[in-house]
Write a protein that binds this DNA or RNA. Structure first.
Lengths: 130, 130
DNA sequence: GCGCAACGTTACAGTCATGTCAAGGTTGAC
DNA sequence: GTCAACCTTGACATGACTGTAACGTTGCGC
């Protein structure tokens, strides 16, 4: 498929798809006219890249991490490199910290929103009797 | 306190403290010699700013959001601006999405790490009998 | 074939949160 | 007085986008 279709299916702008290619995360083939030609499996890959970037993982690390997230039923580890393992543990722990932080903030925001709603309801009520 | 102490206590580099000031998130007073003078309450504020930035909220939004996260016992909403409310809901929902994503990835990574460990244990075992 | 919209290409500039460094002023200890 | 440790501003670099300009390709109606 061409870049436009991939963009639609992944909701990642074409601009970003070209950027990820520049960063070596995906390497589409080229048609004779120079257009990029994307294989089906890249749809999933791109979605995964987006997810990881949204999680705050830099492209450089995503490159090493991606093969570890392809879990076709059974996880097969070809080369249990201890350095890779350490990196994965480090990143996972950072993710866990971020989760805690985000949960704290969502909670605080939810409370504030509820307070706004109460305040709004109160002013509406006081106005009603008029 | 001076910038260095604040940096130590918040673990935010001085560079960033100056940047947050540039973005209008904090406004320290100045000593006669031009040094920035930070009040005690800014320690908390800076930590909050960091947390929000780590959660992927841009400084521009943090500025509007900060007053909503000061919960001194009871939340008092002065002006229940519906636009502000919408912004807060939007950001909270984005945070919730990020949490789901992060949880998914931490889970995947944990599984992969476990697989690496099993693989490593297996190779160690097969070597043991020798 | 012509025109034209929709799509593709590269390349360069700008943004945002950071990092890093230079050049210089201030303070405090010895 | 000098030296380290601290502060100041300012400039340039980087990583992940984001926008846009300038231009080539494709496919459709006419």
């Amino acid at each position: 498929m061409k870049i436009g279709e991939l963009a639609k299916r992944t909701e990642v702008p074409t601009r970003m798809l070209r950027y990820y290619e520049e960063q070596g995360l995906i390497t589409p083939r080229r048609q004779q006219n120079g257009y990029r030609e994307y294989d089906e499996y890249l749809v999933d890959r791109v979605k995964k890249i987006r997810g990881l970037l949204d999680s705050g993982i830099p492209t450089r690390i995503i490159g090493d991490m991606l093969p570890c997230l392809n879990q076709p039923q059974e996880i097969v580890v070809a080369d249990p490199d201890p350095e890779l393992r350490a990196m994965l543990v480090r990143e996972r722990d950072r993710m866990t910290e971020r989760i805690a932080l985000l949960e704290h903030h969502t909670h605080a925001l939810t409370q504030y929103i509820a307070a706004m709603d109460r305040s709004l309801a109160a002013t509406t009520e006081t106005r009603l009797p008029q």
